[in-house]
Amino acid sequence: MPPGATPASELSTRLSRRLANFKLSDAAVNALADRITVEGLSIARFDPCIYGICLDYYTDKLPALASLSKKKGVVKWEVFPYGIIEWDRFHVRMAFEVDELEGRGLNREFLG
Protein backbone atom coordinates (compact mmCIF):
# COMPACT_ATOMS: atom_id res chain seq x y z
CA MET A 1 0.00 0.00 0.00
CA PRO A 2 1.47 3.38 -0.98
CA PRO A 3 2.58 5.59 1.93
CA GLY A 4 -0.23 7.77 3.16
CA ALA A 5 -2.86 5.70 1.36
CA THR A 6 -5.98 4.91 3.32
CA PRO A 7 -6.63 1.24 4.11
CA ALA A 8 -9.81 0.06 2.44
CA SER A 9 -11.43 -1.02 5.72
CA GLU A 10 -10.77 2.36 7.28
CA LEU A 11 -12.14 4.11 4.23
CA SER A 12 -15.24 1.97 4.45
CA THR A 13 -15.66 2.85 8.09
CA ARG A 14 -15.54 6.48 7.25
CA LEU A 15 -18.04 5.87 4.46
CA SER A 16 -20.68 4.47 6.79
CA ARG A 17 -20.11 7.31 9.22
CA ARG A 18 -20.14 9.99 6.54
CA LEU A 19 -23.37 8.59 5.19
CA ALA A 20 -24.98 8.37 8.63
CA ASN A 21 -23.94 11.87 9.60
CA PHE A 22 -26.33 14.55 8.45
CA LYS A 23 -23.39 16.76 7.51
CA LEU A 24 -23.55 14.89 4.22
CA SER A 25 -26.55 16.63 2.76
CA ASP A 26 -29.77 15.02 1.65
CA ALA A 27 -28.97 16.21 -1.87
CA ALA A 28 -25.62 14.40 -1.83
CA VAL A 29 -27.19 11.23 -0.44
CA ASN A 30 -29.97 11.34 -3.03
CA ALA A 31 -27.49 11.97 -5.83
CA LEU A 32 -25.45 8.99 -4.71
CA ALA A 33 -28.51 6.75 -4.50
CA ASP A 34 -29.66 7.90 -7.91
CA ARG A 35 -26.31 7.01 -9.39
CA ILE A 36 -26.03 3.57 -7.92
CA THR A 37 -29.61 2.48 -8.51
CA VAL A 38 -29.78 0.81 -11.89
CA GLU A 39 -33.05 -0.58 -13.21
CA GLY A 40 -33.01 -4.35 -13.41
CA LEU A 41 -29.83 -4.81 -11.44
CA SER A 42 -29.62 -6.14 -7.91
CA ILE A 43 -26.84 -4.65 -5.83
CA ALA A 44 -24.65 -7.33 -4.32
CA ARG A 45 -21.71 -5.37 -3.01
CA PHE A 46 -20.83 -1.76 -2.29
CA ASP A 47 -17.24 -0.76 -1.75
CA PRO A 48 -15.06 2.33 -1.86
CA CYS A 49 -12.49 2.13 -4.60
CA ILE A 50 -9.96 4.31 -6.32
CA TYR A 51 -12.67 5.90 -8.44
CA GLY A 52 -15.03 6.62 -5.55
CA ILE A 53 -17.46 3.78 -5.14
CA CYS A 54 -17.56 0.45 -6.94
CA LEU A 55 -20.65 -1.71 -6.99
CA ASP A 56 -21.22 -5.26 -8.00
CA TYR A 57 -24.63 -6.14 -9.40
CA TYR A 58 -26.17 -9.38 -10.54
CA THR A 59 -28.82 -9.92 -13.18
CA ASP A 60 -30.18 -12.71 -15.30
CA LYS A 61 -30.64 -10.40 -18.25
CA LEU A 62 -27.86 -8.82 -20.25
CA PRO A 63 -28.09 -5.19 -19.19
CA ALA A 64 -28.66 -2.36 -21.63
CA LEU A 65 -25.06 -1.31 -22.02
CA ALA A 66 -25.85 2.01 -23.65
CA SER A 67 -27.87 3.08 -20.63
CA LEU A 68 -25.01 2.14 -18.34
CA SER A 69 -22.67 4.33 -20.35
CA LYS A 70 -24.95 7.31 -20.00
CA LYS A 71 -25.45 6.92 -16.27
CA LYS A 72 -24.17 10.00 -14.54
CA GLY A 73 -20.90 9.63 -12.72
CA VAL A 74 -19.97 6.25 -14.19
CA VAL A 75 -16.22 6.03 -14.56
CA LYS A 76 -16.14 2.52 -15.90
CA TRP A 77 -18.24 -0.64 -16.09
CA GLU A 78 -17.64 -4.28 -16.81
CA VAL A 79 -20.12 -7.01 -17.68
CA PHE A 80 -19.14 -10.63 -17.65
CA PRO A 81 -20.81 -14.00 -17.22
CA TYR A 82 -21.01 -15.11 -13.63
CA GLY A 83 -19.19 -18.26 -14.54
CA ILE A 84 -19.39 -21.98 -14.05
CA ILE A 85 -21.64 -21.77 -11.00
CA GLU A 86 -24.36 -19.85 -12.83
CA TRP A 87 -23.95 -19.99 -16.57
CA ASP A 88 -26.82 -17.70 -17.47
CA ARG A 89 -26.30 -15.01 -14.88
CA PHE A 90 -24.37 -11.81 -15.39
CA HIS A 91 -22.11 -9.91 -13.07
CA VAL A 92 -21.94 -6.18 -13.64
CA ARG A 93 -19.28 -4.12 -11.93
CA MET A 94 -19.59 -0.36 -12.08
CA ALA A 95 -17.33 2.34 -10.72
CA PHE A 96 -18.82 5.71 -9.81
CA GLU A 97 -17.01 8.94 -9.22
CA VAL A 98 -18.34 10.36 -5.97
CA ASP A 99 -16.97 13.80 -5.19
CA GLU A 100 -18.72 14.17 -1.87
CA LEU A 101 -17.12 11.19 -0.19
CA GLU A 102 -13.75 10.30 1.24
CA GLY A 103 -11.57 8.59 -1.36
CA ARG A 104 -10.93 11.58 -3.54
CA GLY A 105 -7.46 11.85 -2.05
CA LEU A 106 -6.89 8.20 -2.85
CA ASN A 107 -7.88 8.92 -6.45
CA ARG A 108 -5.21 11.58 -6.72
CA GLU A 109 -2.49 9.36 -5.27
CA PHE A 110 -3.15 6.64 -7.81
CA LEU A 111 -3.88 8.90 -10.75
CA GLY A 112 -0.96 11.26 -10.06
Binding site: S9, S12, T13, L15, S16, L19, A20, F22, D26, V29, N30, L32, A33, I43, R45, F46, D47
Partner: peptide, 19 residues
Protein backbone atom coordinates in the same frame (compact mmCIF):
# COMPACT_ATOMS: atom_id res chain seq x y z
CA UNK B 1 -38.36 9.33 7.87
CA UNK B 2 -38.41 11.40 4.74
CA UNK B 3 -37.47 9.73 1.46
CA UNK B 4 -33.94 11.11 1.86
CA UNK B 5 -33.71 9.67 5.36
CA UNK B 6 -34.70 6.28 4.02
CA UNK B 7 -32.05 6.54 1.34
CA UNK B 8 -29.48 7.52 3.92
CA UNK B 9 -30.32 4.56 6.15
CA UNK B 10 -30.27 2.19 3.19
CA UNK B 11 -26.82 3.36 2.14
CA UNK B 12 -25.49 3.18 5.70
CA UNK B 13 -26.72 -0.41 5.94
CA UNK B 14 -25.01 -1.22 2.65
CA UNK B 15 -21.78 0.30 3.88
CA UNK B 16 -22.03 -1.67 7.12
CA UNK B 17 -22.59 -4.88 5.15
CA UNK B 18 -19.27 -4.25 3.49
CA UNK B 19 -17.57 -3.13 6.65
Amino acid sequence: YSASDETRLYLVVMALQEE
